[in-house]
């Protein structure tokens, strides 16, 4: 079969057999693709640092008849997270992005909007600031995958929540007003909902100038991850590590 060429983001690699690596790629052309990089574990000569997670590459791969795994022919690095200083918070943030994409994306389904979102968020994650790009990524990811409920109205009675207190619960499908909140609900602040509206209107680069300590939008991130984990029916590995960061 013919070789395909596509921009791709490396999500994960796993050791396979003695010398090979099983690589999960988020390609622009085919969505999430799994392929075998022959001898990539034993020798770095062919792929170099191109298979490090969250590296943007131009991948050349070949689909094989009646085989689920593609054969990864080559990867040319377009942007690598290793070209900037890799700190512990940045590693956890990048790991979180990779895990979310790997878990949420279906196999072989192109999603150009999500691809462009990831590239722009990876650009914003080059610096030391992680909380704003992560919030932006989680918000848009839940929206683009169709998981995000309406943030402006109560899911139970339809009350407009503009300027009103809003609540969320692990078992509820959206935000609730003060009258319909469930026992042990958490509050989603008005400020965080305003940030969400702003994030839907502006590119991530336009918000990079604002200082974003962890406390800003923390309730929004918790709300978004609760939605994602509920849909995935599993806990994310990187979530507790993010929670422990300062």
């Amino acid at each position: 079969m013919a070789l395909k060429e596509s921009e791709a983001i490396v999500l994960r690699t796993y050791p396979m057999r003695e010398a090979d690596l099983l690589v999960t790629l988020f390609t622009r052309l085919d969505g999430k693709v799994r392929g075998v990089a022959r001898s990539a574990k034993k020798s770095r000569r062919r792929f170099g640092g191109a298979l490090e997670p969250l590296t943007l590459v131009r991948a050349v791969y070949e689909d094989r008849e009646r085989q689920e795994l593609t054969r990864l022919d080559s990867c040319e690095v377009m942007d690598s997270p290793l070209t900037r200083q890799m700190t512990y918070p940045r590693l956890v943030a990048l790991g979180h992005v990779a895990e979310l994409l790997d878990e949420v994306l279906p196999d072989r389904e192109a999603n150009d909007a999500l691809f462009r979102l990831t590239v722009s968020v990876l650009g914003a994650l080059r610096g030391p600031e992680i909380w704003m790009p992560l919030t932006y990524f989680e918000l848009w990811l839940t929206r683009l995958t169709g998981f995000l409920p309406d943030l402006s109205a109560c899911v139970e009675c339809g009350l407009d929540l503009e300027g009103e207190p809003a609540f969320y619960h692990a078992l509820a499908d959206g935000l609730m007003c003060v009258d319909h909140k469930r026992l042990a609900s958490s509050r989603l602040s008005v400020d965080s909902r305003r940030w969400a509206v702003q994030m839907f209107r502006a590119p991530v680069a336009a918000l990079s100038a604002e200082p974003w300590p962890k406390s800003v939008g923390e309730d929004l991130r918790k709300f978004l991850m609760q939605i994602v984990q509920r849909h995935l029916e599993k806990k994310l590995t990187t979530q507790p590590m993010l929670a422990k960061l300062d």
Partner: peptide
């Protein structure tokens, strides 16, 4: 190792 995990570990230890 000069991988993203090795670099982040080195950065964490350096701090």
């Amino acid at each position: 190792n000069p991988t993203i995990e090795g670099e982040a570990t080195a950065s964490y230890l350096a701090d």
